[in-house]
Structures are given as C-alpha cells and as structure tokens.
C-alpha cells in the first residue's frame, strides 16, 4: 500500500450491482481514493501474530435445538413483493443456471 491507491470503480460497481453514471464514477473514485490513502495508516502498525477479531466478544457455541416452528402465511410473505404470480416472486427471465 505504498503507492497512491486506485480503485477500479467499474469492477467494484459491477460486484456491488449498482449502476453508476459517469459523474458518480469520477466523484466516488476521487473520494474513495482519498479515503483509501488515509487508510494507509493501517499498514504502519505491526500486526504479526495478532488474531483477527470478527466479533466484539470471543464467544462460541451459540446454537438452537432442531425444533420446527410455524411458517409465515404466504400472503404476509408476499405483501411487499414488487411483482408476484402464483404465490411466487416474478423476476425477468433468468438465462443462466449457476
């Protein structure tokens, strides 16, 4: 992280599934590169042998027993649906199974 960081805005926007216009791309790139430049501070600290923290506390083994509960009524499940048919969500035809 020694050089000025750059961000491939097209690639990241595609990953994030957000369409950006050219103005947004230029603006975000400049702003985020400034932010990333500030982030370079991080590389100055020695983290050898330090465990990463994925959680605020080190707690293990939180689970539940395998006991089923009632399902949500289908009308409720679909009440906010932008497009529905036959109790299912409608989306534009999906071309590739993946």
């Amino acid at each position: 992280m020694s050089d000025k960081p750059t961000i491939d805005i097209n690639y990241v926007a595609k990953l994030a599934r957000i369409e950006l216009d050219e103005n947004e791309k230029a603006k975000f790139s400049a702003q985020l590169e400034q932010v990333l430049d500030y982030f370079k501070k991080l590389s100055e600290v020695n983290v050898d042998g330090v465990e990463p923290s994925a959680h605020a506390h080190s707690i293990y083994n939180v689970w539940r027993d395998d006991i089923p509960t009632a399902a949500m009524p289908v009308e409720e499940a679909l009440m906010n649906a932008p497009a529905k048919r036959d109790n299912q969500i409608v989306v534009p035809k999906v071309v590739d199974e993946a």
Partner: peptide
C-alpha cells in the same frame, strides 16, 4: 462500493483482514 472493494479479490488481506487484527489491538 468501499465495502465491496476492501473485500474484493486481492485487497482482502491488506484492508479487511488487517483491520480485523488492528481491531484486536
């Protein structure tokens, strides 16, 4: 965008993983 970037291939260790370690500190 920023969050997708710091997790993306090639940047995870430098940003996200390192940040998690400094979080420990």
């Amino acid at each position: 965008i920023l969050g997708s970037y710091v997790l993306s291939s090639g940047y995870y260790d430098a940003y996200y993983l390192r940040a998690q370690k400094v979080r420990t500190l």
